[in-house]
């Protein structure tokens, strides 16, 4: 029961943070709240036994993504303009329909935390049993990540690489020599 309460409290904060992000127009505050959202999510991940994911979410969501967001804000704007004319009706319907569909889908789901759910009895359970004899590594997540599903991780590495290449393609990356020359020109 204690876990449930922690869960609910965390969810409560998450919903509050999300709603605040929806309402606020100051993008600086939004960014900070987004970081907070990530931290809360990371906490939730810990209660759900996903320590690796929590670690990553904290490092990415609260760390690097906040930094990038701030960097982008410095180059764009800090205030969202609120326009009364925006149609919010269609998006609302879309979201309600999607949400209703998902909730409809949950009714036949295995119960939360049930140990006999297919998720645990099939491949997932097998990883837990095989990891030690196969690889000798205690952290099953690492073993699955780097070996059993190592190709996904190669893909993931490539994704990051693509992102960096794309950002460089879009924003450029002046060589230091050029920058110095620029500074001298300005001086």
């Amino acid at each position: 029961m204690g876990v449930i309460i922690i869960d609910l409290v965390l969810f409560g904060f998450l919903v509050l943070a999300a709603l605040a992000i929806l309402r606020l127009t100051n993008l600086f505050a939004v960014t900070m709240l987004a970081g907070l959202f990530s931290l809360l999510a990371a906490s939730l991940f810990i209660t759900l036994d996903a320590v690796d994911v929590a670690f990553t979410e904290a490092a990415v969501g609260a760390g690097i993504s906040t930094v990038l967001m701030l960097g982008a804000l410095a180059l764009t704007t800090r205030e969202e303009k609120t326009l009364a004319t925006r149609r919010a009706f269609v998006p609302l319907i879309c979201c309600l329909v999607t949400g209703a569909a998902l909730i409809y889908g949950t009714f036949d789901m295995p119960a939360f935390g049930a140990a006999d759910a297919p998720v645990h009895t099939h491949v997932g359970g097998e990883y837990l049993q095989r990891t030690k004899p196969d690889t000798g590594i205690p952290n099953v997540v690492t073993a699955v990540l780097a070996s059993y599903r190592g190709f996904d991780t190669l893909g993931e590495t490539t994704v990051i690489f693509v992102a960096a290449i794309s950002v460089l393609l879009l924003l450029g990356f002046p060589n230091r020599a050029n920058r110095r020359k620029q500074d001298e020109d300005e001086a």
Binding site: R149, F151, D152, G155, E156, T158, V159, V162, A163, I165, S166, L169, L170
Partner: peptide, 20 residues
């Protein structure tokens, strides 16, 4: 799931080359 990963590789690259 591998479909998703590679779909995103191609999509991200696509956004970039479209933007160029």
């Amino acid at each position: 799931f591998n479909v998703f990963v590679f779909l995103e590789i191609s999509s991200l690259a696509t956004y970039a080359i479209v933007a160029s």
